[in-house]
Amino acid sequence: MHVQLLVTHTDFCLHNLQRELDNVGIQYQIDYIEDNPQQVNAYHIRHSPNIFIEGKLVFRYQPSPAELKTLIAEEN
């Protein structure tokens, strides 16, 4: 499962989100909104964080641990 975090360089919740993803065993890559204007425009992104799975935008906010566990269950 390819997970991309699209965040701002100043996203204050990034460390917490990383910890939650690590805790449920999800590997991810971090990309920055400032470096990806084409993706920002394509998805009309206005806030951070954004989580893409297999290229599909699935969260426009920081999901709860329960939402992450549900996501894993759905993907497996």
Rank of each mutant, 00 (worst) to 15 (best):
M1K: 07
M1T: 10
H2W: 00
H2G: 00
Q4V: 15
L5E: 05
L5H: 07
L5A: 05
L5S: 07
L6Y: 04
L6K: 03
V7I: 15
V7Q: 01
V7R: 00
T8H: 02
T8L: 05
T8V: 03
T8F: 01
H9S: 09
H9Y: 15
T10C: 00
D11L: 02
D11P: 01
D11Y: 01
D11E: 11
D11Q: 02
F12C: 00
C13Y: 08
C13R: 12
C13I: 13
C13P: 00
L14K: 12
L14N: 08
H15V: 06
N16L: 11
R19I: 10
R19C: 02
L21I: 06
L21Y: 08
D22T: 11
D22K: 13
N23G: 13
N23F: 04
V24I: 14
V24S: 10
V24H: 07
Q27D: 13
Y28Q: 12
Y28F: 14
Y28P: 11
Y28N: 12
Q29A: 10
Q29F: 01
Q29G: 12
Q29L: 06
Q29C: 05
Q29T: 15
Y32H: 13
I33D: 03
E34Q: 15
E34L: 03
D35S: 13
N36G: 04
N36L: 05
N36K: 13
N36Q: 14
P37F: 12
P37I: 13
P37G: 14
P37Y: 10
Q38P: 02
Q38C: 05
Q38F: 12
Q39Y: 03
Q39C: 08
Q39H: 05
V40P: 02
N41A: 14
N41K: 08
N41E: 12
A42G: 07
Y43S: 07
H44I: 03
H44D: 14
R46I: 14
R46P: 00
H47M: 00
H47W: 03
S48P: 02
S48K: 01
S48Y: 00
P49C: 08
P49S: 09
P49Y: 04
P49M: 05
P49D: 05
N50C: 15
N50D: 09
I51D: 07
I51W: 01
I51N: 05
F52E: 04
F52M: 06
F52I: 07
F52G: 08
I53V: 15
I53G: 02
E54A: 09
E54L: 04
G55Q: 06
G55K: 06
K56R: 12
K56P: 01
K56D: 12
L57H: 10
L57P: 07
F59S: 11
F59H: 11
F59W: 14
Y61Q: 13
Y61M: 03
Q62T: 12
Q62I: 10
Q62D: 03
P63V: 09
P63D: 10
P63M: 08
P63A: 11
S64K: 09
S64H: 05
P65A: 08
P65E: 10
P65N: 09
E67C: 02
L68C: 10
L68A: 11
K69F: 01
K69M: 10
L71W: 07
I72P: 03
I72N: 07
A73L: 07
A73Y: 04
E74H: 13
E75R: 10
E75P: 00
E75Y: 06
N76M: 06
N76W: 02
